[in-house]
């Protein structure tokens, strides 16, 4: 079988399209690369959704945590504490078991002439349940980063905003928020990379891979089990993830450049990604 055929058969296997049976014997290098790459679609999906939704939730959490009112501050503090203080692995297990216990309710509705049904059973599926956990998790970590940045917004900027008569939402949107993002950006880049790496945990922690539709690591461990040779599939996963990490660094670097574009060109430090690699 040439590689083109394999690509056709397995490129979208992780989404349930293409060949139903996974290769069992005579596993070629091409099989491994294509299937693991196909699984990577899930990792990218989890990371993208979690980053996008987590970003807004994190902003809200950071603002809530810096409020003087106890009733707003305490819930945010607890949320951040719980999600940052416990292992993501346990959170996945717990969430899955809790979602399974939920009573099954569903509603059906028509939207644009197509019939949809929304129900709690979707929460036990990885695409929704695991995404939810990831969103909360990254929101907690990012919230703490944003909170730190919020507290180090320069006093002069705030005074200038007051002098211009900006208040409330305008003051936040025009002055506080952009500065907060600018300050938090390097740390946030780190968090994004960690989140991308954490997506590999999904299918190893309770959430079942239905019909063998799993992520990159799921297929890699499948191949490692079948061929009893870890030296091919895991380096492939590693290669894919290093590529993904580079893409994240580049994208966040561009955004960071834009966030800093108003600063004096000479004084402006070039956006340099300083890897800390631990959060």
């Amino acid at each position: 079988m040439i590689c083109g055929d394999t690509f056709q058969a397995y490129a979208l296997r992780s989404l349930g399209h293409g060949e139903r049976l996974l290769p069992k014997a005579d596993i070629t290098l091409c099989d491994q690369v294509v299937l693991i790459g196909s699984g990577l679609i899930w990792n990218i999906y989890f990371a993208a959704i979690a980053l996008l939704a987590g970003f807004f939730l994190a902003t809200a959490l950071a603002v809530a945590k810096s409020r003087p009112s106890r009733w707003i501050r305490k819930p945010a503090e607890w949320f951040i504490f719980v999600f940052r203080g416990s292992p993501l692995f346990i959170q996945f297990f717990l969430a899955y078991l809790a979602f399974v216990k939920l009573p099954k309710v569903g509603v059906e509705f028509m939207l644009f002439g197509i019939e949809f049904d929304a129900g709690t059973h979707w929460l036990t599926r990885a695409w929704l349940g695991a995404t939810l956990v990831l969103v909360f998790n990254t929101a907690a970590y990012t919230g703490e980063i944003f909170y730190g940045a919020l507290r180090s917004v320069p006093k002069g900027d705030l005074e200038a905003a007051d002098a211009y008569g900006l208040t409330g939402w305008h003051r936040f949107r025009r002055v506080v928020w952009p500065t907060m993002l600018r300050l938090a950006w390097p740390a946030y880049t780190n968090e994004a990379i960690f989140l991308f790496h954490a997506t590999t945990l999904v299918y190893f922690s309770g959430f079942p891979a239905r019909k063998q539709m799993g992520d990159a690591l799921y297929y890699a461990s499948y191949f490692a089990d079948k061929t009893f040779n870890p030296f091919v599939p895991y380096p492939i996963v590693a290669g894919f993830f290093i590529l993904g990490t580079l893409v994240i660094i580049l994208t966040f670097g561009l955004v960071g450049k834009r966030l800093n574009r108003h600063l004096p060109q000479i004084n402006r430090k070039r956006f340099r990604f300083r890897p800390q690699w631990i959060r």
Binding site: H197, A198, L217, Y234, F241, T245
Partner: peptide, 13 residues
Amino acid sequence: IVRGVPDIVFFLF
């Protein structure tokens, strides 16, 4: 190398 790859990959590998 160790930092650029998810740790769970290493654990399995």
